[in-house]
Simulated scan of single mutants.
Amino acid sequence: MTRLTLYTNPMSRGRIARWMLEEIGAPYDVEVIAYGPALRSAEYLAVNPMGKVPALKHGETVVTECAAICAYLADAFPEAKLAPSVQSRGAYYRWMFFAAGPLEAAVTNHSLGFQAKPGQERMLGYGSYGLVLETLAAALSQTPFIAGDRFTAADVYVGSHLIWGMQFGSIAPRPVFEDYTGRLTSREAAKRANQLDDALAAEQQGAAASSAG
């Protein structure tokens, strides 16, 4: 089997890629990249020139950006059934990249206190923070999962944004968001991924405390 390696840090978006890997069920290795000089090392920049995590290596193929990692793994491991048929991928692609574009940009700008002046909304690509969340809420009120009646890789990505957004206060909880994320966090793969990254984070914190002492 072609080797899978996840380059990650437990305090990063690498948690999204970890969850996706747990969903596909294939064995994988983990390379933890500490924040600081390691991210800018020549060795890691050869993997991801942006110097950020996560990154995924599958044999000689390197994939970066969480949405791309989720989409790639769904296609590379079709037996996991995490992508609809090509003929049925309209909603799947739509919402995967809605989260990667409008949702992330709107939430980030809102968290930083940036607000477009009246008449400038069209320049942003997402219109407004409120419009983005209303659009997503409307979609989730129609089907149990973001792309329809079954769980897909798009739910890993969209769901992660909502889970973290509500956890850290950048997205206000709504019943439709809480119902949706509750279905996702109850999945065994999501639980395993969180347990693995929580343990890794605790290990890192312990090591940092020991070195500081």
Rank of each mutant, 00 (worst) to 15 (best):
Ala201Met: 09
Phe114Glu: 00
Ala55Tyr: 00
Thr108Ile: 12
Thr108Leu: 14
Glu43Ala: 15
Glu31Leu: 01
Val86Gly: 03
Thr143Met: 03
Ala38Ile: 03
Trp19Gln: 02
Trp19Ala: 10
Ala76Lys: 08
Ala17His: 08
Trp95Val: 12
Ala212Ile: 11
Ala71Phe: 13
Leu200Met: 07
Ala17Arg: 07
Gly113Val: 05
Gln205Ala: 15
Gln167Val: 01
Gly127Ile: 09
Thr152Pro: 10
Tyr28His: 11
Leu136Trp: 13
Ile16Ser: 03
Gly159Tyr: 04
Gly182Ile: 06
Asn48Leu: 02
Lys52Phe: 01
Ala190Lys: 01
Glu23Tyr: 11
Gln205Arg: 11
Ala67Val: 12
Gln142Ile: 01
Thr8Tyr: 08
Thr64Ser: 05
Glu134Trp: 06
Thr61Tyr: 02
Ser41Gly: 12
Ala100Thr: 12
Tyr157Leu: 11
Trp164Glu: 12
Ala38His: 08
Arg122Cys: 05
Arg13Trp: 01
Leu140Ser: 10
Ala212Ser: 13
Ile163Tyr: 01
Gly165Phe: 06
Ser41Phe: 13
Tyr7Gly: 04
Ala68Phe: 01
Ala55His: 06
Ala139Glu: 07
Leu200Val: 00
Tyr157Phe: 15
Arg94Tyr: 01
Leu21Glu: 08
Arg13Glu: 05
Pro54Phe: 01
Val32Gly: 02
Ala68Arg: 00
Phe97Thr: 06
Gly119Thr: 10
Ile171Phe: 12
Ala172Ile: 13
Ser170Ile: 09
Val86Ala: 15
Val156Gln: 06
Met20Val: 09
Gly25Ile: 13
Phe168Trp: 15
Leu45Val: 09
Ile33Gly: 06
Asp149Gln: 10
Ala212Glu: 12
Val176Asp: 03
Ala189Ser: 14
Asp75Pro: 04
Gln142Met: 01
Asn194Gln: 13
Val107Tyr: 06
Glu134Lys: 15
Ser211Thr: 09
Ala207Tyr: 00
Phe97Asp: 04
Glu43Pro: 00
Asp155Asn: 07
Tyr92Gln: 10
Phe114Lys: 02
Gly51Val: 01
Ala26Ser: 05
Leu112Val: 09
Met11Ile: 14
Tyr129His: 15
Ser12Val: 05
Ala137Asp: 13
Asp197Tyr: 14
Pro118Trp: 04
Ile69Asn: 06
Ser88Asn: 15
Val62Phe: 02
Arg40Pro: 00
His161Arg: 10
Gly125Thr: 10
Lys81Pro: 00
Gly125Lys: 14
Ile16Glu: 10
His58Cys: 03
Arg40Asn: 15
Phe145Glu: 05
Met1Leu: 06
Phe97Pro: 03
Asn48His: 09
Gln142Glu: 11
Ala201Glu: 14
Cys70His: 04
Arg122Ile: 04
Ser128Val: 09
Glu22Phe: 08
Met20Tyr: 09
Met20Lys: 07
Thr185Trp: 07
Ala17Cys: 03
Ile16Cys: 09
Gly206Gln: 13
Ala193Arg: 02
Met166Ile: 14
Thr5Gln: 05
Ala106Met: 10
Glu43Thr: 14
Lys57Val: 14
Ala99Val: 08
Val107Thr: 11
Pro175Leu: 11
Ala68Val: 04
